[in-house]
Write a protein that binds this DNA or RNA. Sequence first.
DNA 1: ATGTTTAAGATTGTCGACAATTTATTGGCA
DNA 2: TGCCAATAAATTGTCGACAATCTTAAACAT
Lengths: 227, 227
Amino acid sequence: MNSLNPARQAPVTTADKIFETMQHEIVEGEILAGSKISEPELAKKYQVSRSTLREALNRLEKCHLIERKANVGSRVVECTVTGLLEIYIVREALEGMACRLAATAMADDEIAELQSILADHGQDKKLQDGVAYYQEEGDLDFHYRVIQGSNNQQLINILCGELYHLVRMYRCQFGMNSPRATRAYDEHKAILHAIADRDGELAEMLMRRHIAASRKNIERKLEQEKL
Amino acid sequence: MNSLNPARQAPVTTADKIFETMQHEIVEGEILAGSKISEPELAKKYQVSRSTLREALNRLEKCHLIERKANVGSRVVECTVTGLLEIYIVREALEGMACRLAATAMADDEIAELQSILADHGQDKKLQDGVAYYQEEGDLDFHYRVIQGSNNQQLINILCGELYHLVRMYRCQFGMNSPRATRAYDEHKAILHAIADRDGELAEMLMRRHIAASRKNIERKLEQEKL
DNA sequence: ATGTTTAAGATTGTCGACAATTTATTGGCA
DNA sequence: TGCCAATAAATTGTCGACAATCTTAAACAT
């Protein structure tokens, strides 16, 4: 999936590698959410100097995975319900707009390619039925391609560069194998149909509903867990 | 204006000060857009070590004022027409959503305060008439408060922390003393009215039109300059 | 003259050490 | 016992130097 990102450059410097390693560990929860980051400790763990580690920390901060306070240090971000819902709001606004733009900016062959990918997902879904994991990957893949299709570098940068891994982190740590798999698949089809029709207004509305439905689904689920 | 930002912490470390200095110089164009950043040169200019300067550069990158390539160096971002229009698109999506949220999240006294501020702007506008500068500040101020009113930390962070200074940079360098002053003022009043009515849907639509109108105004102006 | 290879110069990335600040610990006092 | 002050320990911020990489220049061959 990461390999699909054309903007992503291969990790050339050591700080790049430490960054990617830590990014993975934070997303997967191996480095616990909310935990304090000890620069000396981690520098020893990864066998690099503190300068190099700090360079990596700066990039983690750029994609909102850690937070720094002057003269105090860094902490991994907490995974709160509020934070999760806030991100869905941002995604609803930005991906909705991206979808509107994609309806006019995407080339015919890009749309065709995405249609065939979606068809593949449909078959896989039938095979695996309830198992939502693959669908999750597929969901990310679909959203990712629509964003790229917007052809707006600022949008792409924010969604694919700065928010993407934070979204993945929440998915991992809240264990989201949603029961919305088949419905989400249908919604994807409808969105893509609107894009193929070059109907930006409808495409935006459908994408916003799609993301809002996910958000409400989570709100509902978390409400039930409380009871 | 900056003093209105509650999230902003006073510059405590030397890297903070260098960051703010450079941020100002880039926004105002004293450090030219598109120019290459020489670490040794700037370190000498500001009388700090390269490590400290690099720390400042990292924060400039976070708010999209410079871009870095591994083993090559940093450049100040270019101010292109495409880039400007792209930012307006992002703002339309995000500030529209912020406005929708503000309609339900803002407290009554916050709304009242903003109304009185807007009234002051109206008087100042009458006094200074065509002079758009103060109105520009007022425009930023209004948008800023609506964003804060959304009470969504992710939104606030992106708009006020990461995009704010880039928007200011474009305003400075493209010399935007728009002739939309009085119309923008009326639009602000209508937006705030919708917020006071707690009509989020309308508030979002009006804010989106407001920003889209600005964008189209710029598109038109730049189109004319070409001819 | 032009294009390629090689070497020199300059720039960025990384390192370890020191200074400044914060946090933890200890001791004293109400 | 509980709270505050002073000290000790640990952590973050800053510095200058070295290593790796890129850029520029010069020399050479075609």
